[in-house]
Amino acid sequence: MSVLYLVIPLALVVVALAIGAYVWSARSGQFDDLDTPAMRMLHDDEAGETRSEKREA
C-alpha cells in the first residue's frame, strides 16, 4: 500500500485546487443572490438594462 504515500498528497493538491476555485467563485459574487436569477430567467430582458449594470447599482 505504499502507493498511498503518493496518492494522498496528490489528493490534497486536488482539494486545494477545488477550494481555490470555490473561494474565487464566492468572492466574485456568484452566490450573492440565489433566488432572483431563477425568477429572472423566466422573464424577458428589459431593453437597455444588462446584468452587469444591475450588479454595479
Binding site: Y22, V23, G29
Partner: peptide, 21 residues
Amino acid sequence: RRREDRAALVRIGVAGALAGN
C-alpha cells in the same frame, strides 16, 4: 452585507471541504 455574506460562504466552503477530507 454582501461582503460579509461572501466571507461567510468562503468560510463555510473551506470548512466543509476540509471536514469532508
